[in-house]
Design a protein around this nucleic acid. Structure first.
Length: 772
DNA sequence: GGGTCCTACATTTTT
DNA sequence: TGTAGGACCC
């Protein structure tokens, strides 16, 4: 077949471009994957050696799909397709020495890193000092993604806490070094340093990978950017594809500027825009387009489609999250019953995994088959992690983390006290725990019994190490028997012993599959693959079930029918984004990504009262709802709420302490009216750019304690106290969502709402008027 | 040493 | 609501 036959001129231009940098700005659903795979095929057809093509994706799943599609066009092409982390892990195995690490290094995942940070903090910081290991861990990751060393981080410190973080960072790095371990981010960081410090290696790789493709370029961080650039100096045949409007990993260091300024990096580059959408109906696209136009930091872009108009986009308001879940389950049931869709055509997206629970429950009782993507990865489950720790220790005797994890699993009479003695002795001698355990007799303060236990353990490890060259499946089978782990779990009747045994069997299957796919591979390779695996890689669209996943996981996928739930302030946008416009725009893109996954039907929903973390709370509609167009949408209110009552509220200006349950006995459609903080603030006419400031002078006398106010950014709240006088008078406002905040009243865009203090400012109240 | 219970805690998204 | 870590008891 001809590679170009069924392509548009723009797509054809991208596919046939061979030499020089190329930027493909691909709107959602514009056939980007098809363009990339065709382009690779075209390169190969033009006589370019497969070994000189490097295709980098964001997830293993995307990589697998791309490889498959390339294979279909050009069988057995041996093009390298993979993720950044996979590529770097492979490079590092070869060039470990140049980065000053063992080639047998262990890769620590995020939970390993957190564990290591905790250990380090115990030693370096002593007691807390006001920062949590999670904070430090996040700071370390951020620093690494931005190629910031502990030393530099220290010079940037602004307070005691920052200094402390920098100190822990340095100690953590030392710990990694002595353990021959690298964390996730290090895979990139070490490769960057090799490329930087060894020009010959860099030039060699640049030459080798003459044609580099990077997908989802909008999600690259500084380290990734540095790698890509270093590989495209002498042979800048760099093709990047992406969509700035779908950048949703800023929190992980992704830098939108990478794609926005690609043309500046490579002035000679060709730019191809794919703006025609093949995926969604006109209605869905219109909703997506309206929303994303509220983002300021973007390149304007039009998305057009020749697809039919399609059904209206539905927005439904429910009373509670359980009703929402049941509503979604019921709708899915009828969609399938009507015969137009199968379960596997349908997906439900949530902002957070925690929001999936009520939906799962509803699915179970409505007998809707579903699979959930995300949450705890298979490889992060305790028993799986235990076994992997054995493998890690076998492969890397310096891996103290692995040692500590399994030295007493199954129980060998080695409790915390013994461990503490061992750790202290090892620390003094600066040797790994396993090496110290071999000389258990020399450990001060250790009981005989514990010393014997340690020696027994080292003997076991030595025995296991002899298995290292065998196929992964066999190693694991043997390991489970010889360590007594299987027996240990078999005796475990509580704690889902059965499930855990089943997980071990699944691990064995995974190992078998690995052995088949990678004959001759080492345990290191198996461990690397497993550590770099993510939950989404295991997702399978072909199982005949509804898919339940986070909005982040949904990127790159498409479904005929899509539901997005919990469109409420504090959830979408997430409360942590409240005070930062950049983050707010990212939240908007997140919803944009969700919407544009839908091919034919899109259902949005929210509820008035949500029980979350065991707490019942009244909600506010997401501000994003206000940014959707009126026309192709259909609003339903199934919350059974009363029209607003113009009567005095429950207390003197009282914020209801606890939201009143809405009557379920009086359901029925109600007229719909959007009420968002921004609208109440009187800024609905602000148009582009979203909520603006207040629209007129506010009488400062009106801002008294007890008054309900609205802030364009933080939403509705009540003034709890006022201090000082004159122009510098400050007021503290308790918001319905998020932390209380203090403002200089004369400067803050606060507006009283509801007129008198007595009026019920109940959030989320449906209005009596129709907004159309 | 090891198990159990309890409390305090945090709580986004993941290669 | 869940989990991780500490206190307590055997």
């Amino acid at each position: 077949m001809d590679l170009l036959d069924d392509l548009t001129p723009a797509q054809r231009e991208a596919v046939t471009h061979v030499q020089g940098p190329l930027l493909v700005l691909a709107g959602a659903g514009s056939g980007k994957t098809r363009v990339i795979t065709r382009r690779v095929a075209h390169l190969l057809h033009s006589g370019i050696a497969p070994e000189s093509v490097l295709a980098i994706t964001f997830t293993n799943k995307a990589a697998g799909e791309m490889r498959q599609r390339i294979d279909a066009l050009v069988p057995n092409s041996r093009v390298w397709v993979g993720t950044f982390h996979g590529f770097c892990a492979r490079l590092l195995r070869i060039h470990a020495k140049l980065a000053g690490i063992d080639s047998g290094f262990t890769i620590y995942d995020q939970s390993d890193r957190l564990r290591a940070v905790k250990d380090v903090m115990d030693q370096v910081v002593g007691d807390g000092a006001g920062i949590t290991p999670e904070h430090v861990e996040a700071a370390i990751s951020r620093a690494k993604n931005e190629l910031v060393s502990p030393q530099v981080l220290r010079t940037r410190a602004r307070d005691e806490k920052d200094l402390l973080k920098a100190r822990v960072f340095a100690a953590y790095e030392e710990k990694l070094r002595t353990s021959s371990a690298v964390d996730f981010d290090d895979l990139l960081v070490h490769v960057v340093s090799i490329l930087k410090n060894h020009p010959d290696v860099r030039a060699g790789l640049d030459r080798r990978y003459r044609y580099v493709l990077v997908d989802e370029y909008q999600d690259t961080n500084l380290a990734q950017y540095a790698i890509v650039r270093a590989l495209s100096v002498d042979h800048p045949n760099l093709c990047v594809t992406g969509d700035p409007d779908q950048s949703i990993y800023g929190w992980r260091g992704a830098n939108l500027a990478n794609i926005l300024e690609f043309e500046r990096d490579y002035p000679s580059c060709r730019v191809v825009k794919l703006e025609r959408n093949y995926r969604s109906t006109k209605n869905i696209l219109s909703v997506a387009d309206h929303l994303i136009r509220f983002n300021r930091n973007r390149k304007p872009k039009s998305l057009v489609t020749e697809n039919p108009r399609g059904a209206p986009v539905e927005l439904t308001v429910y009373a509670r999250e359980t009703d929402e879940a049941e509503g979604i389950a019921g709708k899915i049931d009828s969609l399938v019953r009507e015969g137009e869709f199968r379960f596997s055509d349908i997906a439900v997206f949530c902002r957070m995994t925690a929001l999936t629970r009520p939906i799962e429950q509803a699915f179970r009782s409505a007998k809707v088959p579903y699979q959930i993507v995300g949450g705890v990865s298979f490889y992060e489950r305790q028993e799986v992690k235990d076994v992997l720790s054995y493998l890690n220790l076998m492969a890397n005797p310096k891996d103290d983390l692995a040692f500590a994890r399994i030295v007493n699993v199954p129980p060998r009479g080695l409790g915390k006290t013994s461990l503490d003695h061992l750790v202290e002795a090892a620390r003094q001698r600066r040797i790994p725990l396993l090496a110290m355990a071999r000389q258990a007799g020399q450990v001060e303060g250790l009981k005989d019994k514990a010393a014997r236990g340690l020696l027994e353990f080292t003997g076991l490890v030595d025995e296991l190490v002899t298995l290292c060259d065998h196929p992964a499946e066999e190693v694991i089978r043997q390991l489970l028997e010889r360590t007594g782990y299987r027996t240990y779990l078999t005796g475990e009747t509580r704690d889902n012993g059965e499930d855990r045994l089943a997980n071990l069997d699944e691990l064995i299957s995974a190992a078998r599959e690995f052995d088949q796919d990678h004959p001759g591979a080492s345990i290191h390779d198996f461990l690397a693959e497993v550590t770099l695996a993510s939950p989404i890689d295991r997702w399978d669209q072909q199982t005949g079930t509804v898919t339940l996943m986070t909005l982040h996981a949904a990127k790159g996928l498409e479904f005929p029918v899509v539901f997005v739930n919990a469109l409420e302030e504090g959830l979408l946008p997430h409360s942590r984004a409240n005070d930062d416009n950049k983050q707010l725009e990212e939240e908007r893109r997140l919803l944009f990504v969700g919407i544009t996954r839908a091919q034919r039907e899109l259902y949005l929903s929210r509820c008035r009262i949500r029980t979350f973390r065991g707490q019942q709370q009244a909600t506010f509609p997401s501000r994003f709802l206000e940014e959707l167009p009126a026309e192709p949408m259909e609003h339903h209110d199934r919350s059974g709420v009363e029209p607003p009552q113009r009567v005095a509220g429950p207390g003197a200006g009282g914020w209801p302490r606890r939201p009143e349950p809405y009557p379920r006995s009086r359901p029925g459609p109600r007229e719909f009216r959007l009420t968002t903080a921004a609208e109440l603030a009187g800024s609905t006419t602000a148009g582009r750019g979203g909520p603006a400031g207040a629209t007129g002078p506010v009488n400062l006398d009106a801002l008294r304690p007890g008054i309900t106010v609205v802030h364009p950014q933080f939403g509705i709240g009540r003034i709890v106290s006022v201090e000082g006088a004159g122009p510098r008078r400050k007021g503290t406002v308790a918001f319905a969502v998020g932390e209380p905040r203090t403002f200089v009243l004369a400067l803050a865009p606060l507006r009283p709402i509801g007129g008198t203090a007595g009026q019920d400012p109940r959030p989320s109240e449906g209005g009596g008027q129709n907004n159309r």
